[in-house]
């Protein structure tokens, strides 16, 4: 079980990096080193996501990197522009990356739903660094929260502090299924409907898979 959690740790770690900000050269060059296993040589577009949505998404992203291997630096710039267009603006970003946009009646930011997220962070002894400025329920921050809980659970488990590990693990499970699973599919759908960039399509699939694990 702990091995499974360790695998997930990498998954959430990658996802938080992808959704918190534009991909760095370092990350893309690194991801380019991922070897696609022989069983999955077919083009991902012809093969549906199937059950392993996260894996499918990862393959999508890696293939996108491979396609742009010859002009990676230019393409990384394109990714930054696409990240801004999708998630930031200045013109209406099609995939607003905050939970409250999807969950609140007003479709705005910093709603009661955001404060609920803040309370769950607090329950795990955590808070947003830029409290009151950056909405707590940004997708990247929520992913970082899951990443942190996963890491902490493993650590506590290995230190034989099983009760605390179990408590954090429960917070994690609740946060994933009662909160993230409620809005992330809507967010993912918006990304898929509005981007032509395979890297972000892949990221969207991977995110969906990660939330539905």
């Amino acid at each position: 079980m702990i091995n499974a959690l360790k695998d997930e740790l990498s998954l959430y770690n990658l996802l938080r990096q992808i959704f918190l900000k534009e991909p760095s050269k370092y990350l893309i060059h690194d991801m380019n080193k991922i070897e696609l296993t022989s069983g999955n040589q077919e083009n991902s577009e012809t093969k549906g996501p199937g059950e392993d949505m996260a894996g499918y998404g990862l393959r999508f992203m890696v293939e996108a990197i491979r396609k742009n291997e010859n002009n990676l630096n230019e393409w990384i710039e394109d990714l930054a522009i696409e990240y801004a267009r999708l998630f930031i603006g200045p013109q209406n970003p099609p995939a607003v990356p905050y939970a409250s946009f999807y969950l609140s009646e007003s479709h705005s930011l910093m709603t009661d739903e955001t404060i609920d997220v803040r309370k769950q962070y607090l329950e795990a002894g955590m808070a947003v660094k830029e409290l009151y400025s950056i909405p707590d329920d940004h997708i990247g921050i929520e992913l970082e929260f899951i990443y942190y809980l996963t890491q902490k659970t493993i650590e506590l488990f290995e230190q034989e502090q099983r009760d605390e590990a179990a408590r954090l693990f429960e917070i994690r499970g609740n946060f994933l299924s009662n909160h993230m699973a409620q809005w992330v599919p809507l967010f993912v759908e918006r990304i898929l409907n509005s981007t032509g960039e395979d890297f972000y399509k892949g990221a969207a699939y991977m995110l969906r898979g990660a939330v539905e694990l």
Binding site: N13, L20, E35, T37
Partner: peptide
């Protein structure tokens, strides 16, 4: 439901060795 097929590949990424928190404290 499904075990991650690429988990192994991911764990080898140097970029993921950065484990510090970016937005939370």
């Amino acid at each position: 439901r499904v075990f991650l097929k690429y988990a192994g590949a991911l764990s080898g990424l140097a970029a993921l060795n950065k484990t510090g928190l970016v937005s939370l404290k």
